[in-house]
């Protein structure tokens, strides 16, 4: 080894040092977002332990009982504890949104990268179908498909995932296009690698940062869509606790000066903002827009 060739060395210790240094530079808004998301996730995971009552448990004879020490946010139209339903709602809303978003990326990412690698007629055909789907307003299209397939958690997840996948397709295809032209992909082809290898091993790891930061934005959209659909009555069906439907069920109270319906709405808004903060930060870190290394 000549000394001229050794300057690339960097040991593992400095790598972790770098990670710690990067974490210490995370902006305040992102910290806030991380803390909020962590709280939501903890609440969702440990809902049965935290909630004072059960999800479907009718705890009061009177509907719409006001806030009290016994029922912190009062009860709903059937006399169920609002706080408990809020806590279980985190589980349902976030869980379903997460599953739907993951499926969105699995479909959109795989098809997008494949289209970029294969190119030619296949790419054109898929892209035009995607364009056609994207030209129909999302919410209208989802409502229509739900009307055909009937409401229900599984249908909801599949329909949202397929519609959302069109946008992920666009993104991952564009990102993969920049990678496909690099020589290591050509080297893999020269080695006789199969399409699944090229897609999953050569390209996907390189566009992962872009996909991860978009995951946050997509998650917000899916999460809002589910809440919106539930508010309209075609999303998650009763008696499942869901923030969107909880807003609808207690909406009438707002005219009586009760702010209870704003609580699930705030829960929705806060999570959306928190995910956006973190997503922005990840995008900034991975896109090379930030000045540090």
């Amino acid at each position: 080894m000549s000394s001229s060739d050794t300057d690339g060395k960097r040991n593992v210790g400095t790598y972790f040092h770098g990670v710690i240094r990067r974490m210490s530079r995370v902006p305040l808004t992102s910290w806030l977002g991380i803390v909020v998301i962590a709280m939501y996730v903890l609440v969702a995971l440990f809902a049965p332990l935290i909630a004072p009552y059960g999800e479907f448990e009718v705890v009061s004879q009177r509907p719409f009982e006001p806030w009290s020490e016994q029922f912190i946010f009062g009860t709903d139209q059937l006399g169920r504890d609002v706080l408990s339903r809020l806590i279980f709602g985190a589980r349902n809303t976030i869980g379903i949104a997460f599953v739907a978003t993951s499926l969105t990326f699995l479909i959109g990412g795989t098809v997008g990268i494949t289209a970029a690698v294969v190119g030619g007629v296949v790419d054109q055909a898929i892209s035009r179908v995607v364009d056609a789907v994207m030209s129909i307003p999302d919410l209208v299209f989802i409502l229509m498909l739900l009307a055909i397939a009937g409401p229900g958690a599984t249908n909801l997840v599949i329909i949202i995932a397929v519609i959302g996948a069109t946008r992920v397709y666009r993104l991952s295809r564009a990102a993969a296009h920049n990678v496909v032209s690099l020589e290591f992909v050509e080297a893999a082809r020269a080695r006789g690698e199969t399409l699944p290898w090229v897609v999953t091993q050569e390209i996907q790891p390189n566009i992962l940062p872009v996909l991860i930061s978009d995951f946050g934005m997509r998650f917000c959209f899916v999460f809002l869509a589910i809440a919106g659909l539930s508010f309209l009555g075609v999303g998650l069906q009763p008696p499942t606790a869901e923030w969107g439907s909880m807003v609808r069920e207690s909406a009438a109270l707002i005219s009586a000066g009760d702010i209870t319906p704003l609580i699930p709405a705030t829960a929705i808004g806060l999570l959306t903002i928190a995910v956006n903060f973190v997503g922005d930060w990840i995008l900034n870190e991975t896109s090379g827009l930030s000045d540090g290394r």
Binding site: L182, E183, F184, A187, A190, Q201, E202, P205, N206, L208
Partner: peptide, 13 residues
């Protein structure tokens, strides 16, 4: 085959 630019010929990940 070996390429001119090893930066792009090796998968960075």
């Amino acid at each position: 085959i070996i390429y001119q630019s090893a930066d792009t010929a090796l998968n960075p990940r």
